[in-house]
Design a protein around this nucleic acid. Structure first.
Length: 592
RNA sequence: CGGGGUGUGGCGCAGUUGGAAGCGCGCCGCGUUUGGGACGCGGAGGUCGACGGUUCAAGUCCGUCCACCCCGACCA
């Protein structure tokens, strides 16, 4: 490709609304342009990188038996009503009416489309197991797109769906994906870890997320360096430090004016925060037989801990939670800031499993300005649910080995879910098994966003001059710079560069050829910004000695290669760059 | 949805007490230059986010709305 005709201008300064590095660099280098919040155009450079990423995904999916197809982006609402997600999903789903006034949906994922097709196409156990996938656009009207390509509203995703006769089959396909995903990220040279994750609205019972560890990530993970335990904070467990056992003392009411926070209260009383009970009120959307209903929930964790809303949501079996408003809290008889589990009605009380083992706590008295001392579970109050609802934090003890866990931030670049039969049952996607019985197809779903992956790679590989793209995903393999200029009166430099461009291209090398009439500084800076791994420079300096200059983007040394050997040597260098990446791929141990 | 911020040429920005819309980069033409974002001369390009109001006069003051960014809420 000649840069003189490439639709991609580099920018000396990034747009002011690009805050994170990958966003700034991808815009400055001319890979992407923003059209609206969370909606981007992939320019030719990005498109080439994305195609390479997607071809890696194809290859790894095909290797585990996947067959590529393409399911529609626009769906009739019926298939979403059939699984209940038409009602269940909120404004994040794109909806519109077609010309005949029928409800239509912009796909945010494709489980519905999958079961719609297999309902008709899969009839016999002989057709299973099967793995289907596609690489398709999704629309999710996220309330807050951010961080360039990391979190967008319109994006492309490789999503695959495993179809099996039974759970053993699912386990096998799931384990294959577990490995295939490490291969995909490895081939893109992106370091990731797999962590256990919440199954969320997808249902099912096992899920992993692939995380690229980065301070700009949106998820918090807890990792144990001692034994390898890793989990998203949403579900991370930990060993709780129990309070010292003591005899329940007599409950007493004490005046605590203006002490509305745990920190204030503990300081005022001269006690550790672990001797207090923290009250959190939420409104939980619950699905009941009559439909959806909002219920006030009173969650209690020990004062030195934080509530984990995902754990609470799962404990309640709720669709979603939102913070309760003061008037909703007041309606239950509780007093915000002085709330107490003692003597409340019409409210679901959920207490963390540490609370019953924590005697003589200080809790609110449901009276402005007063707390109770020596509140004890069982004697003074009871709960509807007792379970783990506390959030793990940096330094907490690993649930498996007790070692101190680290809390780190990560970007979710992929995930795998054991869906089970939830979707197939919902729409009656069944097959006839060998024993003659009709059974629902057992499903798994597996996703990787290609744009987010590109952004993560850009975030990981760069320096002050620009991007440093791994060769497997770089838009081109070679950046050929021609430095003829007006001193090149007989056009020798220009001719040598043109010939090299032709020869390399003929040899199957992907070349970005800077044939523009620009100064050397401009060309070198643009080359560094775009980040193609190997730069070849044709200039009079080396040409006088019968050579051209080669430089790897990630190194500072330059070498001179005799003109006649350039094509062969270039192919060698490129091969070694690929090998460096592919040799590092390794088999991982699957821990279900 | 709550809090904060920003909207002036493709990008980055300035614009005073309200009084003729500017600068740098980029772009076009001509010439000089050519191994790390060169220089000269000459150009093109803006309904100042939108609408309404105040005023003789609004980029500037007032109001409403919109867009975009950040923090939070939310999120397979």
């Amino acid at each position: 490709m000649r840069m003189s005709s490439l639709l991609s201008q580099t920018l000396r300064e990034a747009p002011s609304d690009a805050e994170i590095l990958s966003h700034q660099l991808l815009v400055r280098a001319g890979y992407i342009r923003q059209l609206a919040a969370g909606i981007f155009t992939s320019m030719p450079l990005a498109k080439r990188s994305l195609t390479k990423i997607e071809n890696i995904m194809r290859d790894e999916m095909n290797k585990i038996g996947g067959q590529e197809m393409s399911m529609p982006v626009v769906h009739p609402a019926e298939i979403w009503k059939a699984t209940g997600r038409w009602e269940k999903v909120g404004p994040e789903m794109g909806r519109f009416l077609d010309r005949n006034g029928r409800d239509m949906v912009l796909a945010m994922t494709h489980e519905e489309a999958v079961v719609a097709i297999i309902k008709d196409e899969i009839q016999s156990y002989r057709q299973l197991p099967m793995l289907i996938y596609h690489i398709q656009t999704k629309w999710r009207d996220d309330p807050r797109p951010r961080a360039g390509l990391i979190r967008v509203r319109e994006f492309t995703m490789k999503d695959s769906y495993s179809l099996d006769r039974d759970w053993e089959g699912l386990d096998l396909q799931y384990a294959r994906h577990y490995q295939a995903y490490f291969n995909i990220f490895g081939r893109c040279k992106l370091p990731v870890i797999a962590v256990k994750s919440d199954v969320g609205m997808m249902g099912g019972n096992v899920a992993h997320e692939y995380m690229y560890l980065s301070p700009m990530g949106e998820d918090t993970l807890l990792l144990c360096d001692a034994c390898g335990y890793s989990a998203n904070r949403q579900i991370a467990e930990f060993q709780k430090v129990k309070s010292p056992q003591e005899e329940p003392a007599e409950r007493e009411k004490i005046a605590t004016p203006e002490m509305k926070t745990i920190a204030d209260l503990a300081e005022y009383m001269g006690i550790p925060e672990s001797k207090t009970a923290k009250a959190v009120f939420v409104m939980a959307a619950m699905q009941t037989a009559e439909g959806e209903e909002e219920k006030l929930v009173f969650a209690i964790v020990r004062g030195d801990m934080d509530l984990n809303e995902t754990k609470l949501t799962n404990a309640l079996g709720a669709k979603s939670l939102r913070p309760a408003e003061e008037k909703e809290i007041a309606a239950s008889g509780a007093v915000p800031g002085y709330a107490s589990p003692v003597g409340l009605k019409d409210i679901i009380v959920v207490v963390d499993d540490l609370i019953p083992e924590s005697p003589n706590l200080v809790a609110g008295a449901n009276q402005e300005g007063y707390h109770f001392k020596n509140v004890n579970y069982g004697r003074d109050f009871e709960a509807d649910i007792i379970t783990d609802i506390a959030a793990a934090r940096d330094g907490d003890a690993c649930p498996d080995c007790g070692g101190a866990m680290r809390a780190v931030r990560g970007v979710e670049v992929g995930n795998i879910f054991k869906l089970g039969t939830w979707y197939s049952e919902a729409v009656g996607a069944t097959f006839q098994d060998a024993d003659g019985e009709e059974k629902p197809v057992v499903m798994g779903s597996y996703g990787i966003g290609s744009g987010r992956l590109l952004a993560s790679i850009a975030e990981e590989y760069n320096d002050k001059y620009g991007l440093i793209m791994p060769i497997t995903v770089a838009p081109y393999e070679v950046h050929l710079v021609e430095l003829g200029g007006s001193k090149d009166e007989r056009g020798e430099v220009k001719q040598a560069a043109e010939k090299l461009y032709q020869d390399l291209t003929a040899a199957g090398v992907e070349v970005l050829y800077d044939d523009r009439d620009e100064s050397p500084g401009v060309k070198f800076n643009d080359a560094d910004l775009i980040g193609v791994p190997l730069r070849l420079t044709v200039g009079s300096r080396a040409l006088k000695e019968g050579g051209i200059e080669a430089k790897l983007r990630h190194e500072s040394e330059k070498i001179q290669i005799p003109v006649g050997e350039v094509v062969a040597r270039t192919r060698e260098i490129i091969k070694s760059l690929y090998d460096d990446i592919l040799d590092k791929l390794e088999d991982v141990e699957f821990e279900g």
